Simulated scan of single mutants.
Amino acid sequence: MKKDLSHMLDSFFDDRSLKKLLYTLDEYVHRTFSPVYIPIDVRETKEEYVIIAHIPNAKRENIHLQFVDDTRLLLSVVYDEQIETIDDENKFVHRQRTYERAMKSIFLPYPVSQTNIQASFQDGKLIIRLPQKKTFIPIE
C-alpha cells in the first residue's frame, strides 16, 4: 500500500500539465508581488544634478525619460523578453514571455533647465546630467 501511494504521488507530480500549472502559478505570484525597483543615486554640484539609475537588464531602446515639470523627471523602463527552449529529444518547445514596466519619479529640490541635458547608458547605468537653473550669488 505504501508503494502504491508513493507511486501515485510520483505520477501525480510527474504530470507535465500539473508542472506547467504550478510553474505558471509561481511565475504569476513572483510577477505580482515583486515589483521592479530602480535604485538611483543623485549628486548635486553648483552647475548640475547628476542622476545615476542602476538598470542592469534594460535595453537602451526601452528606456524613456520625460519631464513632468521643472522639478520632476519621470524614468520608465520596459522589460520585454522572450525565451525559447527547444528539447529535440522529446520534441518539446517551451516559450516564456516576460513583460514588465518600471517607473520612477525623480524629484529635484530646485528647477532645472530642460536644454543641454545629457543622458548616456552603458553597462547597466543610465547617467543623466541636468543643468541647474538656479544661480549662486557670490558674497563679498
Rank of each mutant, 00 (worst) to 15 (best):
F121G: 01
Y23K: 03
D80V: 07
V50S: 12
S105C: 04
Q66W: 10
E84A: 10
R31M: 10
L9E: 10
K125M: 02
P109S: 03
E44V: 07
T24I: 06
H64N: 12
Q114R: 04
D80M: 14
Q122D: 03
V50G: 12
K104C: 01
R72Q: 15
D123G: 01
F33M: 08
A53D: 07
Q66T: 10
M103Y: 15
R95N: 03
Y79H: 08
Q118H: 03
A102T: 01
Y79Q: 08
K125S: 01
L25P: 11
A58M: 00
F13P: 04
Y110L: 03
L108S: 03
V50E: 11
A119R: 00
K59A: 06
E48Q: 15
E84T: 07
I117E: 02
T115H: 10
I106M: 01
P35G: 08
F107A: 00
H30W: 10
N57Y: 09
T45K: 10
N57D: 11
Y110K: 02
D70Q: 10
Q118N: 04
K20V: 01
D10F: 12
V29Q: 13
V112R: 01
V36E: 09
R43G: 15
T71L: 12
F13V: 02
E89S: 07
V29N: 12
Q122L: 01
D15Y: 11
K104Y: 05
L21Q: 14
L108E: 00
P35S: 07
I55Q: 03
Q66F: 13
L22Q: 06
E27W: 15
I83G: 08
T85S: 09
S6W: 08
R43Y: 14
D80R: 15
L74E: 14
V112Y: 02
E47F: 10
S6D: 13
N62S: 13
L18E: 05
V50T: 07
V93N: 08
S113P: 00
R97T: 10
P39K: 04
R101E: 08
N90C: 15
K104E: 02
V68W: 13
S17N: 11
D10S: 15
D70K: 11
Y79F: 14
